[in-house]
Write a protein that binds this DNA or RNA. Structure first.
Lengths: 166, 166
DNA sequence: TTAAGATTTCAAATGTTTTTGAAAGTATAA
DNA sequence: TTATACTTTCAAAAACATTTGAAATCTTAA
């Protein structure tokens, strides 16, 4: 496979995968583009490569910066801003986990905590509390596990996997 | 908090959370409704409770059955079908993991495998391969870890957590 | 069979999210 | 300061996803 073909495929596919990940298609494509680019890219470059509008490019680059997946970079004597993707995969994956945890897990835990205020004064209420309590327990465990993963060093993942083998 | 208030809050919130989870709002609400219902419910019941159309109810119940989160149940002498949610939380969570893994992780691994065919015949190609190889490695590890979780017994989660503490 | 009860389908309507591009805003060089 | 290069905003348009409800289909009892 040619390099250019591989890059294009990566960018396109990452966009499609992005939507399955609850991430805007274009945001994922911009990310992929920056990931495989050796040089920092300007908004202009991104617009041209992906054939998207200025507003769209700007929006998604800012979202990526917000996620901590992309950084601004200034070039000597150049007035425009250039963008670079975080290339360390462990850092990148960690940022994604933090964001998804915040968006998907934490609000669920908050709601479950609230509704567990229901009084267990009937068999029906007990059944309801059983469901919510169990859900809460699993959510808390998942939250703690992800927190641990996020706080860990890059090499920890390997240690972790050998533990899982048992 | 009153039981009914708690139930309503659960159903509404589960719907909202569902969208953050890439799950259709109504599908999540139907699931929540069945989770907190003591009795099996008919399509009619679901329509009335959630104030949704017949077609919508039917579609989402079928999607839930497809995910393995809901089962059909027949009642003696009744012609209509009734539906019941899987109440065992471990089984439920396992089904969700299986589905999301299939939708989010496996396609990514497939694409990464394909584009790693690129020949490492230039510094640029090498950089590209470095990114994709690392991504693939992490994806494989995540896949293996989830597979392990899914195959494990309910109690395993607890063992798992104590391992994580270290 | 047939009729009634129940489920499924699907085209059109509605609702939501993303994208565009022109206008407004900002920063820098001269 | 002023002109210019660049970035950001945002309302309208386009694309995409969900919901409706009536018609088609399936199923069962008689």
């Amino acid at each position: 496979m040619e390099l250019q073909e591989g890059k294009d495929k990566f960018i396109q596919s990452w966009g499609t995968l992005g939507s399955n990940w609850g991430i805007n298609r274009t945001m994922a494509q911009v990310h992929a583009l920056l990931l495989v680019s050796l040089e920092p890219m300007s908004a202009e470059d991104i617009m041209n490569d992906l054939k998207i509008s200025r507003g769209n490019a700007n929006m998604n680059v800012r979202a990526l910066i917000d996620w901590g997946l992309v950084h601004k970079e200034l070039k000597q004597g150049e007035r425009k801003e250039f963008f670079v993707a975080e290339k360390d995969m462990w850092t990148m994956i960690r940022q994604v986990i933090v964001h998804r945890k915040k968006k998907e897990l934490e609000p669920a835990i908050k709601i479950l905590t609230e509704i567990m205020e229901v009084q267990a004064n009937s068999p029906e209420a007990e059944e309801f509390l059983k469901v919510t309590t169990e859900l809460k327990m699993f959510s808390d465990k998942a939250d703690a596990a992800l927190e641990k993963v996020v706080r860990s060093k890059p090499t920890w993942m390997l240690t972790f996997m050998s533990m899982m083998k048992s």
